[in-house]
Design a protein around this nucleic acid. Structure first.
Lengths: 191, 191
DNA sequence: CGATTCTTTGAAAACAGTCAATCTGTGTGG
DNA sequence: CCACACAGATTGACTGTTTTCAAAGAATCG
C-alpha cells in the first residue's frame, strides 16, 4: 500500500478502499537512483508514471546534442512521453530521475483497464488531461510572448516547489535560454 | 446537409447516414465575414467549431496590446478556446475570421451529447484530442529549441496550406518573432 | 481610385548565445 | 580528515541575433 498515492487520490475525489486497492494492484512500483533512466529515447514508452517521491525530467535531444526539457515531475505528479505512450511509437524523449525516486507504473493496458474499472479515476484522469492541455497552451503562450526574464519570473511564481530543488541550468533548459543568460537574469532581478 | 463535414467524417472513420444526420442536427451553422469575431476575449467560449470553409485565428493579447497567435484553423479543422470551453470561464483568447468563413458549432452540452450518441465520433474525438496534445508538445519543443529561421522552415514544411493564405505578419506572431525579422529571414533563405 | 493593410528596408539599440575561465559546494576514496 | 574530482553557478569579453523605430514601397479592398 502506497500512502502518498492514496492521499493524493482521496484529496482529488472520493474513492472506496476497494477502488484504491484496485488502482494499486494494477500498478508496479519501481525505484530509480539519481541519473537513472525511466525511459530512453528510441524505446517505446510503455508506462504512465505517478511520482511517489523524488523528481524526474522529460527532455529531448537535438542534432547538436543539446537537451531541452519539456517537463519536470515531483511527488504527486504524473509523467510519461505522451506521444509514445499513446501510439506506441519509439519515444523522442528521455525520462531521467533527478533524485532517488519512487514511481508507480501502469502499462497502457492496465491504465485503460483501471479507467474502466474505476469510473471516478476515469473522471479524474479526464480532468487532469484537460488541465494538462491548458497548462501546455499557457506555456506555449509565454514562450512566444514573453522575454526570458518574464518567463523566469513566471516559472518561479508558478512552481515555487521546483525552483528550490532543480538545478538552475535545467530551469534554463526548460525556459529555452542558456544557463549563462539565466544566471545574469537572476543577478539583475535578485533571484 | 453540409457536404464538406460529411466528407471529412467519412474520410476519418465509418459513419452511418443516421449518425451523420445526428451529428449535424446537434450543430448550428454560422457565417462570419472577414474580421468578424467568433469569440471575444472575456466572453465564455460556448462552442466547439468545425471550419466548413474559410479560416480563423485564435490569439491572446498581452499588456502591451500585442497579439500572439496560438492557432490557425482552415477547412476541416476544429477550433475553440480549450480552457474556456472546458471549464466555462471567461476566455483569455479571441477567435477571429481571417476570411469569410462558414462554421458548424456545437454547444458543450450538444457536443457531450453527440459523443454519447455516436460512439464512432467519440473515438474520433479522442484521437484528435491526443493528436492535438502531441502537436502542442512539438510546437513547444520547437519554440524553446529552435532559432526563428528553423521555426519558420518547420512551419512552411508542416503547413504548406497555411502559408499561402495567411498574412506573413500573422505567421510571425504565431512563431513568436517580429514581422520585420520574418521578412528578413525570408529574404535570406529565399521564401 | 483612395484608403487601408501588408511587406520590406535601414540604422541603432537591446537582447541572448558562445567560449573560456573562475568560483563554489559536495561527495568520494585514500 | 584531507585532497581531489565533479557538478553546478557565475563572470567577462565577444559575437551574433532579434527588436525597435521610422519610413517607404507594394498589394488589396471597397
Amino acid at each position: 500500500m502506497v500512502e502518498p498515492f492514496r492521499n493524493y487520490l482521496t484529496s482529488k475525489a472520493a474513492f472506496t478502499d476497494a477502488e484504491l486497492e484496485q488502482l494499486e494492484a494494477r500498478a508496479i512500483t519501481r525505484k530509480l537512483k539519481r541519473r537513472e533512466y525511466l525511459l530512453r529515447k528510441g524505446d517505446v514508452c510503455r508506462y504512465m508514471a505517478f511520482v511517489v517521491s523524488g523528481s524526474l525530467r522529460l527532455y529531448r535531444t537535438d542534432e547538436a546534442a543539446q537537451e531541452h526539457i519539456l517537463r519536470f515531475a515531483i511527488e504527486n505528479w504524473w509523467i510519461t512521453d505522451p506521444e509514445s505512450f499513446r501510439i506506441g511509437l519509439p519515444a523522442q524523449g528521455t525520462i531521467e530521475a533527478l533524485e532517488d525516486t519512487r514511481v508507480l507504473l501502469w502499462s497502457k493496458e492496465n491504465f485503460e483497464l483501471v479507467k474502466r474499472e474505476v469510473p471516478a479515476f476515469h473522471a479524474l484522469e479526464n480532468q487532469l488531461a484537460g488541465h494538462y492541455v491548458d497548462a501546455q497552451v499557457n506555456r506555449l503562450y509565454t514562450a512566444i510572448s514573453y522575454s526570458a526574464e518574464e518567463r523566469y519570473q513566471e516559472f518561479v511564481r508558478a512552481f515555487p516547489d521546483f525552483y528550490q530543488r532543480i538545478p538552475l541550468h535545467m530551469i534554463a533548459s526548460y525556459l529555452g535560454v542558456s544557463r549563462e543568460t539565466l544566471s545574469r537574469i537572476r543577478k539583475q532581478t535578485g533571484l
